[in-house]
Each structure stands twice: as C-alpha cells, then as structure tokens.
Amino acid sequence: MQPHLREAGLALLDEWRQHYDEKSRGGGGSDGRRWEPLTAEYAARKAKNGLSPRLGMATGRLRRSFTVAGNRNVVTTTRRTVRVRPGDNVPYARFFDKRRPLRPDRLPRAWADAAARRFFSSLLRGR
C-alpha cells in the first residue's frame, strides 16, 4: 500500500507546488486568497540584491522544499497514511506561513481528486 500512498502524496505535492507558484506571482492559488504583498522596502532590497521579485522566491529555497530532490522527506508514508510536508527543512518556513499561509485551510477538491486518481492508477498498474 505504501507505494500507492506515496503516489497520492506526490500528486498532492504537485498540486501544492502549483498553488505556491500561483500565489508567488500574486494570484489567488487554489483557495482564491492572495498573499500579502511585499513591502516597498523589501521589494527594493530584493531588486538591489538581484533576488527574485516574486513572493516567497528570494532565493528559491522554500520553493525547492516542495520537491523530492529539495526535501527528501517531503512525502512520508506509513502503512495507511501519507503525509506531505513542504518547508519542513527550511528554518523560516513557519514565519513565512504565518504571514502568507503555505496551504489552504481546507483540502481543495481538485487536490483530493488528483491524489485519488494517482493512487488508483498506481494500484491498477500493480506497482
């Protein structure tokens, strides 16, 4: 069951990454809520230092934690559960999350559907 749960977790991670990317560009993400914009001072400091102007993308470290390559423990499974935890390996993720929530309050239906499709596809392939 674990390989199939992992597939479901990877599907959730894909959805979460899209959500993060949309919000970092000023969009509403899966929940329609935009992140608080950068202060003028911080935006100027980022520009001066050649950092990305996108929200949550100064160095890209937090965004990379949304990948298996950037955070090997981002998707973990037990016999019956899957846990997806981007940002766990980034010290400032908790601070960022307080001002600009990294996840929607409720699991979006599209995310659940994507995870279910990936889970059952994996199950049917027998992997």
Rank of each mutant, 00 (worst) to 15 (best):
V75Y: 01
W16E: 13
A44G: 11
M57D: 04
L102F: 00
G28A: 11
L38T: 08
R79G: 15
K23L: 11
D21M: 08
L62Q: 00
K46S: 05
S121D: 14
A40I: 09
D97V: 01
G28N: 08
Y42N: 06
N71Q: 15
E36G: 10
E22I: 11
R106C: 05
R85F: 08
G70C: 13
D88T: 06
S122V: 05
R34A: 12
A58F: 00
V75I: 09
R117T: 07
V84T: 04
A115D: 04
L5C: 01
H19Q: 12
T39I: 12
H4A: 15
L51K: 15
S65E: 00
R6L: 10
L10V: 05
R99V: 04
G50S: 04
S30M: 14
A8R: 09
D14I: 03
P53L: 01
G87Y: 03
Y42F: 10
F95D: 13
A11L: 07
R80G: 14
D31A: 12
Y42M: 08
A11E: 02
L38W: 12
L107Q: 08
Y92P: 03
P108Q: 01
T81L: 06
G60E: 06
E36V: 15
Y42H: 12
G87D: 01
A114W: 05
F95P: 00
Y42T: 12
G32V: 02
T39Q: 09
R125Y: 00
Q2A: 10
P91R: 11
W111E: 01
A69S: 13
T78C: 04
R45K: 14
L10I: 01
A116S: 03
G26H: 07
L10A: 06
F66I: 03
L124K: 08
S122E: 13
L5I: 09
G56Y: 06
P101F: 00
P91F: 08
R118M: 03
K46G: 05
V68N: 02
F120N: 10
R79C: 02
Y42Q: 11
K48G: 09
V68W: 01
A44Q: 14
E7G: 13
R99E: 14
P101W: 01
G27A: 12
K23I: 10
A69R: 14
A11Y: 00
R33K: 15
V68C: 01
R33N: 11
G28F: 05
R83C: 15
L10M: 10
L13K: 04
K23Y: 05
G126R: 08
T67D: 09
P53Q: 06
L55P: 06
D31T: 13
R72M: 04
T59Y: 03
A43H: 01
L13H: 00
A110Q: 10
R94A: 14
F66S: 09
D14E: 14
A44N: 12
R6A: 03
A43V: 02
R80I: 06
G56A: 11
P53R: 04
G50R: 05
G50Q: 07
A43T: 02
L5V: 09
F119Q: 01
R103I: 10
R17H: 10
A8S: 13
E7H: 12
A40M: 09
T77K: 03
P101L: 05
R106W: 06
L107T: 14
A8Q: 05
T39N: 10
A114P: 09
S30H: 07
F96H: 06
A114E: 05
G28P: 04
N71R: 07
D31R: 10
G60C: 04
G56D: 04
L123V: 09
V74G: 05
D31S: 09
R100K: 09
L102Y: 02
P101V: 03
R6G: 02
